[in-house]
Nucleic acid binder design. Sequence first.
DNA 1: TTGCAATACAAAATGCATATTTTTTGCTTT
DNA 2: AAAGCAAAAAATATGCATTTTGTATTGCAA
Lengths: 238, 238
Amino acid sequence: MDRAPQHKSQTARIGDLLRELIVGARYAPGQKLRIDDLCSELEGSSSAVREALSRLTAEGLVVALPQKGFVVAPISRHDLIDLTEVRVHIEQRCLEQSIRAGDIEWEGRILSIRHRFLALSGAYKKAGSPEARRWHQLHQQFHDELTSGCANRWWRRLRRQLYMQSERYRRLSGPFADYDRDVDGEHRTLADAVLARDVKQATALITNHLRTTTDILLASSMEFSDDETPSSQAATAG
Amino acid sequence: MDRAPQHKSQTARIGDLLRELIVGARYAPGQKLRIDDLCSELEGSSSAVREALSRLTAEGLVVALPQKGFVVAPISRHDLIDLTEVRVHIEQRCLEQSIRAGDIEWEGRILSIRHRFLALSGAYKKAGSPEARRWHQLHQQFHDELTSGCANRWWRRLRRQLYMQSERYRRLSGPFADYDRDVDGEHRTLADAVLARDVKQATALITNHLRTTTDILLASSMEFSDDETPSSQAATAG
DNA sequence: TTGCAATACAAAATGCATATTTTTTGCTTT
DNA sequence: AAAGCAAAAAATATGCATTTTGTATTGCAA
């Protein structure tokens, strides 16, 4: 085949696509990921798909069942609660160090992304639209930049890993979970506190930001793997 | 009857082998990992080797250079310092929660592993020997059990990830780094503090344990990637 | 004439695709 | 209902094409 000279390897391309699909809630938790289906859907060979899946396994987005293939990582209330606790802790450390070490360039990047991000206010509500996609991109970049002053690569690496996990839970709930919530305001005041180098205020705000999101998700109508279905309730009751 | 008792897939087998080889410092940091060599060395096909390498990539033990293959993750003083800071934080959280939530079974497991581990006192000094290998296994299990009471799977997962990274640095230094150090004593008093449910004492001990190790490694004759070699010094000087 | 550099060619290794083997799962038959 | 058989899917092996790297030769300059 005379394929175009892609500087990005097939594996990387498929891996990024799959991550986007899983985090973007296009694939349901626990769903079986059949190699052949993914090959035709993502237009790649089984080697590339398999390799991408292996990498996502170590990221915790995919689970490998020996001799049985791959499934999308399941979700549960318990997992979300655990995840949130750890993430709060790590976001706090990243923010704290970022505020202490951030330079003028860093301040500039925050001002820039805050401006661009808030300009897309509410775009995430149009689920599946290009604007929503752009909003999610900028949201990720916004939180990335806030913590980009943190010089410790391991903190940043773990933060990114946990962000992906949380983001999946958020996207799984649809855009309706935080209906009457001032998301823009939360982000604006957070950026303000960071730029004002107010560590105490910033860590308090990010903590509240994340905890609130989790509380909303837990109270939402989202289906968790550890929820008891009516049938299973009847089964245990009968 | 006559079916091979290999319930472990080839990929998993090769992945575990490779992890052991890299963490055990059998492969040098930055070393190129040629697929063909690994195939004959580990007795597997290129598919399996490639898949195992992909997984280790996400674990941070291997780095993939697009179109150029895989190399063992490089090491540096900076990385070790960052890693240690993060690990201290996370080990503290795990220990704290483990102490608060651990039950009788958990206490039993700690007593058991402490007994078996301390019985192998000093075995790690015989580098490459079966006893040293056993010692490293039990050392890992010892620290695992201390934190096994922590109910939060994400804390435990991150802890394990960072343990592997730190362990590699430790093994790379050889068994001589902590020559006149009372390693047994440190482990014994740590286990005592944990069993006594003394959070403050236990976290202080683990912090000191990890920081001391890192200080010794940084002061040792270990070669880091960010060390200036005589030739590069001469080059920059001239 | 000699030394250095640049380019081109060859060898090797990576990355992708296809084929084969093994395992699992579901269905049929006894 | 249990056991065996068949179909499907996953795991593994092999083969080919593309890219990279090392080396050698040639050309230019001193």
